[in-house]
């Protein structure tokens, strides 16, 4: 028991240590633009289909569910509003974060983990290259920048999914639906979702890199690092989401 408590605090300590090193190394030269671009493409562009698919079906299901619920109160004209606010404030960021944790966080854990166990990280250091600067900094900022962009697109496609289901399947008046969608939405709703996304991006990338960075014990160690990258990032997203929501509203 005391061992797992110790391990828990060790992970927390490593997280903040990694975060600190990233902040320290970010402004230092040389700036490796190619690495940054490469990571942005990996996290952002390559994840686009799966993130958008998730958002679209979430919007569609939300419309189906809320229509049948709200009809009981005769409040079905608020479906658009409910779908839009849920997507923008909450669901796009959390679901997008979980998908990216599974897709990119795991990749970071696996890639850095295998670089660790095959001594590639030592080799970097020997050749006067700080591994945090070279490997972690581009991954972290790429995720922090790209996740909000993905979430912004998710917002749009989620709302569109809800609209399609309501109008085509449930016969809602399209004009009325659109009106309620934007009637109650404020800029702060959108903004808070995007802030969350950036924060989740930070969690995912730091945790993913940290797990890879401290991996040990060959192929099994890399596997462990990958699993933990996803599990820890997902837990961190879910827990921090609660507190962020509390702070941001």
């Amino acid at each position: 028991m005391s061992n797992s408590i110790e391990a828990f605090f060790e992970e927390i300590g490593r997280f903040f240590r990694m975060l600190w090193q990233v902040l320290v190394w970010t402004p230092r030269r040389p700036f490796d633009g190619r690495q940054w671009l490469l990571q942005m493409v990996r996290v952002g562009v390559n994840s686009l289909p799966v993130v958008l698919l998730t958002a679209m079906f979430t919007g569609m299901v939300m419309a189906l569910q809320t229509t049948s619920t709200l009809q009981r109160y005769g409040a079905e004209r608020y479906v658009g509003s409910l779908v839009a606010l849920s997507m923008v404030r909450e669901l796009a960021a959390v679901l997008g974060g979980l998908v990216i944790a599974g897709r990119s966080g795991s990749a970071m854990g696996a890639e850095l983990g295998s670089m660790r166990v095959t001594e590639q990280i030592d080799a970097l250091e020997v050749m006067a290259t700080d591994p945090v600067h070279y490997l972690v900094v581009p991954r972290v900022w790429a995720t922090v920048f790209m996740l909000p962009l993905l979430v912004a697109l998710s917002d749009a496609i989620g709302i569109w999914g809800g609209y399609v289901v309501s109008v085509l399947l449930l016969g809602t008046n399209p004009v009325a639906y659109m009106e309620t969608t934007f009637q109650y939405m404020e800029f702060s709703d959108l903004f808070s979702g995007l802030v969350k996304a950036a924060f989740f991006g930070l969690l995912i990338s730091i945790i993913g890199c940290q797990q890879g960075f401290y991996a040990r014990g060959g192929a099994a160690g890399v596997g462990r690092a990958t699993t933990r990258a996803v599990v820890f990032a997902s837990i961190a997203i879910l827990i921090s989401d609660f507190f962020l929501t509390k702070v941001l509203f």
């Binding site: 670089m115 095959t118 001594e119 590639q120 030592d122 080799a123 020997v126 050749m127 006067a128």
Partner: peptide, 20 residues
């Protein structure tokens, strides 16, 4: 100083440790 120091060294790792 450490960077300049490391220039004195070349290290060949066990399995090569090439960047794949």
């Amino acid at each position: 100083d450490l960077t300049r120091f490391r220039r004195k060294f070349g290290m060949a790792f066990q399995e090569g440790a090439l960047f794949d």
